[in-house]
Design a protein around this nucleic acid. Structure first.
Lengths: 101, 101
DNA sequence: AAAACCAATCGTATATTTGCGATAAAAAAT
DNA sequence: ATTTTTTATCGCAAATATACGATTGGTTTT
């Protein structure tokens, strides 16, 4: 990508909102989050059964949700239990609320 | 991209939410929408002055926002006046509200 | 009719995203 | 100690996104 010489600096809220939106920009990730909201928590393997996707692909989506801060993984060897990260979830919620008035 | 043989079908709301989120997934587009919320409307040229981006790049972002249905352009020759598409804006708003509980 | 203005589109380059299979790592079960 | 289970990561391929300059198309002004 031919980039602008200087990186554009946006307000912190703008950047944060865009980052959360990006995490939500794929239907699989929306579906994963909806699933987590219902189940409260789940394991990677559960999701692999729910979605017709390779294990590595599901893992990749979980990683992005984790990077965005929307979920967190708790080690329950040999599994990993994923839950909504309530703190950041609330931050995202209020950013979107604020944005839409 | 090596795709699954059959395209995954998600619920309509899930697809719609992901589509809106995608439109919001770039800080420039967030900033454009915030600008439109303040000004109620504006012209492409105004935005080119506000953002340190090429005219074609701004136009590209406007196109994506238009495709997502979040804005609409009204011909005011020789300019084009862009406004929030209030109907779809409200749909997006309620989808995000619903999603975050 | 010609020149000027505004915005979309085209063509191109590069970066990022998405997806898969294969492999690795870490713990549990045998 | 070996095997099994579970999940992350690597390497690759293809699609999509981002950005720019140049060009095009439409309208207004001269």
């Amino acid at each position: 990508m031919k980039r602008s010489l200087e990186h554009i600096e946006y307000k912190e809220d703008t950047e944060a909102l865009a980052k959360f939106a990006k995490a939500l920009s794929h239907p699989t990730r929306i579906a994963i989050l909806k699933h987590l909201e219902n189940q409260s928590c789940c394991f990677t393997g559960d999701l692999v059964d729910v979605f017709p996707l390779a294990q590595s692909t599901v893992s990749q989506h979980l990683k992005e949700l984790k990077n965005a801060g929307l979920i967190q993984g708790e080690l329950k060897p040999p599994k990993i239990k994923y839950c909504i990260n309530q703190e950041n979830w609330n931050i995202a919620k209020s950013l979107f609320q604020q944005f839409f008035d």
